[in-house]
């Protein structure tokens, strides 16, 4: 604590790498005790439950079935009104949760898998293979993703959700890869990795059991970020008509709302609820990432004592 007086916070949060193993991992526990992350996790859990129990919650099995008159305002019978085609918006919203979350999480996971493989390989092997992988990463990072995705989807012509997953994943891994690469570089030079190498552990064991466990919070936050990106991009693609409009997702509900001039006809119930759902899921993911940030860098936290002190000091 020698320079503790002026920078006591830095003393406690110096980014050292205590050796972590899978067994002693407490990220999940730490996350749930962080207020922001807990709220975020709560919202996500709610939507996951809705997705799982969609058949129980939704009034009808087929979200595309016409059940009422066009553009009916919310009523007891149709709590969120009907679409221009007379479909029940609530039913669509519940069923849409499934596809939206599925595409989001699957894409996020594929993205992070690619990012982990490329990032760690690039950081662990040095020399020209690293040069090439970093160059590739940086190039993919700098080419604007959405226009490229739009052009590819345009050529594919009405891609289904799985195609969207593939296209998104193949273009969106670069950010995660770059972050993970630099972290790998740092960890690679730590004592415990050196020790493992001296004792002759095979590379895959070092990567899997020495390096990866020490990047959990980083991988987790990159994953959350990728899911958020996937949810938003999927919705965007569908909104501009590049998805399959017959598969009900939050994005396609908005596509139909826009196409049926919902704004002009004041049919707010067709475009407010799906947007709110997307925003809620997005905000929940952002909250979880705030939490992860605060856990891995305690300096970012604003605890109550500090608030009080600061308020007193800052006159």
């Amino acid at each position: 604590m020698d320079n503790a007086a002026t920078s006591s916070a830095s003393a406690s949060s110096t980014r050292r790498f205590p050796r972590l193993s899978w067994g002693r991992l407490g990220l999940l526990g730490a996350l749930l005790s962080n207020r922001k992350a807990a709220i975020g996790a709560g919202i996500i859990t709610f939507f996951v439950l809705v997705a799982i129990f969609a058949p129980v919650i939704a009034p009808t099995k087929d979200p595309n079935r016409m059940v009422g008159r066009p553009h009916e305002a919310p009523s007891l019978e149709h709590p969120l009104g009907t679409t221009r085609q007379g479909q029940d918006v609530f039913t669509q919203l519940v069923w849409g949760t499934r596809v939206t979350l599925l595409v989001g999480f699957v894409t996020g996971s594929v993205v992070i898998l690619i990012a982990v493989i490329i990032g760690i390989t690039s950081g662990y092997v040095s020399g020209w293979s690293d040069e090439i992988l970093s160059l590739l990463t940086n190039v993919v990072l700098v080419i604007p993703a959405l226009p490229l995705i739009i052009v590819i989807s345009g050529f594919i012509d009405r891609p289904g959700p799985m195609t969207i997953v593939l296209v998104l994943a193949s273009i969106s891994w670069a950010y995660g890869a770059r972050v993970l690469r630099s972290q790998t570089l740092t960890i690679r030079h730590s004592d415990f990795v050196a020790a493992a190498r001296v004792t002759g552990e095979p590379t895959w064991r070092i990567v899997l059991f020495e390096i990866l466990p020490n990047m959990t919070s980083l991988v987790a936050s990159a994953w959350i970020g990728a899911v958020l990106y996937a949810v938003l991009t999927e919705a965007t693609l569908e909104f501009i008509g590049l998805g399959n409009p017959n598969i009900v997702t939050w994005g396609t509900i908005l596509y139909w709302a826009q196409n049926n001039a919902a704004l002009m006809t004041n049919a707010w119930w067709t475009f407010i609820p799906p947007g709110v759902c997307i925003a809620l899921v997005g905000f929940a993911l952002v909250l979880i990432n705030y939490g992860i940030d605060e856990i891995s860098n305690p300096r970012l936290r604003t605890d109550r004592v500090q608030k009080k002190k600061k308020a007193k000091a800052a006159v």
């Binding site: 503790a4 007086a5 002026t6 006591s8 916070a9 004592v305 500090q306 002190k309 600061k310 000091a313």
Partner: peptide, 10 residues
């Protein structure tokens, strides 16, 4: 402390 450079939490 002599220079009064201490900052919260000190």
């Amino acid at each position: 402390a002599v220079l009064r450079l201490l900052r919260y939490p000190a």
